[in-house]
Amino acid sequence: MFLIESIEDVPILSTTLRIMKFWSFLIVHNWRRYVCLTPYILMNITQFLDLYYTTEPIVNVIRNAYITVLCFNTILRALLLCLHRYRYEQFMAKLKNYYVQLMCMNDTFVNSEIKNTIQAAKVFTRINLLMGILACIGFVTYPIFSTSKVLPFGVFVPGINKYRSPYYEIIFILQVIMVPMGCCMNIPYTNLIISFIMFGILMCKTLQYKIRNLNFINSSKAKDDLVWCIKYQVKIIRFVDTVNGLTTYIWLTEFLTYGAMLCVMLFLLLIVQTVGQMIIVSAYIITFAAQIIPMYFFANELYVESIAVATAAYESNWYDSDMDTKKFLKLFMLRAQKPCAILVGNVAHMNLELLQTLLNTTYSYFTLLKRFYG
């Protein structure tokens, strides 16, 4: 009835997987992966060397530092994705099975939630890709609005003056080519993980619906339905645990760098000298926010919806059940009170509270930099 032959046919994943498949990060393994990764890694090495040897103005140093860290995080994502390729694919195969199971319920509420989730995932994917394109345009066009001769990225090439012709033109063209490649490594990964989280939210909402509408008048059927809910709860827990196993240390690395990156970009916004530069730096900040805020928002939604499962169980007609069923339901509610959460370094819950802490800390350091510079 539901023609879902591969993970590429799952609507919530299809757009992102087409990009990742083209660059052979997932599903296939061919030369495109190395064409994309190898020059990007070499470029990132030259970026770090450039920061070490640079004598450029503070504006250029700050911008180059931001882009260097961004490229490093991009490479880290791509390398870990390639390293754990089979784990990602096995997980997505399991997600495909869960998706088919939900569709086979043929329930009006569940079908409506599936439709809403797919639509939200597609909208977010398109918006995020658009923001990535705008960031790429900003990287490439920044030298046009600069008051001095600069490259899209700072690089160090021993033995040559990168600002002399024809070296400048050659490096500039190479960097223009590499910018969209970096976008294809970074943006789709964010889209993929948020799709995972959205599906986890969908599973939690389905479980809430099922447990809230249990019919306890028929004790035998109620027990069978409750057993289904308990098994489905275990599926959700394992689902989120797998996501954490694949991503938790990436989030830790990025949490440690995001604050610094946002801080220096806000500071750069104060010291740029032209309106064009200000607009491009503002675009950097907006693109950065478009990456981090949705991730923490949807992670927070998963956190909230997983806790709401316990509330849904209490809102059911549990008082009509027999004593054995009440005991099962009590155990179910006790486990549901421990939230399923996306973890940062297996330590902190990724939610809006953690994002607020990050932004508060960033603003404090930004204020300190502003006073020091002033």
Rank of each mutant, 00 (worst) to 15 (best):
M1I: 14
F2P: 11
L3E: 15
S6F: 09
I7R: 06
I7C: 12
P11T: 07
L13S: 07
L17E: 03
W23A: 03
W23D: 09
F25P: 04
I27L: 06
H29S: 15
R32K: 13
I41M: 07
L42E: 03
L42H: 01
T55K: 15
E56W: 08
V59Y: 08
V61R: 10
V61L: 11
V61H: 14
R63I: 01
N64C: 08
T68L: 03
N73W: 00
A78K: 01
L79P: 00
L80T: 10
C82V: 09
E89F: 02
Q90P: 07
K96Y: 03
C104K: 13
M105N: 08
D107H: 05
D107K: 03
N111V: 05
N111I: 02
S112Q: 13
S112A: 14
I114S: 04
A121Y: 00
K122N: 13
L129R: 09
I137T: 06
G138M: 02
T141W: 06
Y142G: 02
Y142R: 03
P143N: 01
K149Q: 14
V150I: 15
V155P: 00
V157R: 03
V157M: 06
I160G: 04
S165R: 07
Y167V: 06
F172Y: 12
F172H: 01
L174C: 14
V176E: 02
I177D: 06
I177Y: 07
M181F: 10
C184S: 11
L192R: 00
L192I: 05
I194D: 02
L202C: 05
M203F: 01
Y209P: 04
R212E: 14
L214N: 04
I217N: 15
S219W: 10
D224H: 10
D225Q: 08
V227I: 13
C229I: 03
Y232Q: 14
I236S: 01
D241P: 02
N244W: 01
G245R: 04
Y249K: 09
L252Y: 00
T257R: 03
C263Q: 07
T274D: 08
T274R: 08
T274P: 04
V275Q: 14
M278F: 15
I279V: 13
V281G: 05
V281H: 03
I285F: 03
I286Q: 12
I286D: 06
T287N: 13
T287C: 15
A289G: 10
A289K: 14
A289H: 14
Q291M: 14
I292D: 10
A299V: 10
L302S: 07
E305G: 05
E305F: 11
S306L: 01
T311Q: 13
E315H: 13
S316Y: 01
K326G: 10
K330V: 14
K330R: 15
M333C: 07
L334R: 15
I342R: 02
L343C: 05
G345H: 00
G345I: 00
V347R: 08
A348Y: 10
L352D: 13
L354F: 04
T357S: 14
Y363F: 12
Y365G: 05
T367R: 13
T367F: 09
L369A: 02
K370E: 12
Y373C: 10
